[in-house]
Simulated scan of single mutants.
Amino acid sequence: MTDNVSLVSGVAQRYAAALLDLAEGEGATADVERDLTTFEGMLAESEDLVRLVKSPVFSVEEQLAALTALLDKAGIKGLAANFVKLAARNRRLFVLPGMIKAFRALLAEQRGEETAEVTSAAALSDEHVAALKEALAASTGKSVNIVANVDPALIGGLVVKVGSRMIDTSLRTKLNSLKFAMKEVG
C-alpha cells in the first residue's frame, strides 16, 4: 500500500510541477491558484463531485462532460480548466486533490512560505485563523498559509500539520489516550 501512496504522490508532484511551469510561463500563476482553490471548494461541498472524481466507473467522456459543465458554471477557465480536463482524459482524476495540494505546496515553497493543514471540530473564525497564522509564523520563522478543514469527530481542539510535524490537541485524541490509560490501570 505504501508503494501505491508514493506512486500517487509522485504522479501528483509531476502534474503539479508541470502546471506550475506552464502557469509561470503564461504569467497566470495567481489565476490558476484561485481557480484550483475554487475547484477544491467545490469538491469539499459536493459528495457527488467527489464520487465523479474518485470513481473509476465513469467513462472519460462522462467525466469530461460533467466537469466541463461544472467548470464553466464556476467560471474556471484557462490553464486550471485544461488541467482538470487533462487529468480526466489521462484517467488521473482520482489524484486531482493531491495534485492541487502539491501545486499549492510548490507555490508556497517558491514564495518562501509554509503551509499548515489545520483541522478543527468547527469552522475557525477569521480572528482564530489570524492568531494561528501569527503563532505558526513565530514558530517556523516563515509566512504561513493555512488550509482549514472541519472534522466534527474531533469534538474540540485542533490538529495542526506543518511539514512533517503534527500537533494534535483534539479532544478526541485526549479522550482516546485517557481510555487507553484506564485500560492499562484496570
Score class of each variant (00 low, 15 high):
3 D>T: 11
4 N>Q: 12
7 L>Y: 14
13 Q>E: 14
13 Q>R: 12
16 A>E: 01
16 A>W: 00
20 L>K: 08
21 D>Q: 01
21 D>N: 01
23 A>S: 07
25 G>P: 02
27 G>H: 08
29 T>S: 12
29 T>D: 07
30 A>W: 04
32 V>G: 14
35 D>F: 02
38 T>K: 03
41 G>C: 04
42 M>E: 02
43 L>C: 05
46 S>F: 03
50 V>H: 15
50 V>D: 15
50 V>G: 15
57 V>K: 13
61 E>R: 15
64 L>I: 03
71 L>P: 00
77 K>C: 07
84 V>K: 06
90 N>D: 06
90 N>V: 03
101 K>M: 14
107 L>F: 09
111 R>S: 11
112 G>Q: 05
115 T>F: 11
117 E>M: 10
118 V>L: 07
121 A>P: 00
123 A>I: 04
128 H>C: 10
129 V>E: 09
130 A>L: 07
136 L>C: 13
139 S>V: 04
147 V>S: 15
148 A>S: 13
148 A>L: 02
151 D>W: 10
153 A>P: 04
153 A>F: 09
155 I>K: 14
157 G>L: 06
160 V>S: 10
161 K>D: 12
161 K>G: 10
166 M>Q: 12
171 L>H: 14
171 L>T: 13
173 T>I: 09
173 T>Q: 15
176 N>H: 13
179 K>N: 15
183 K>M: 10
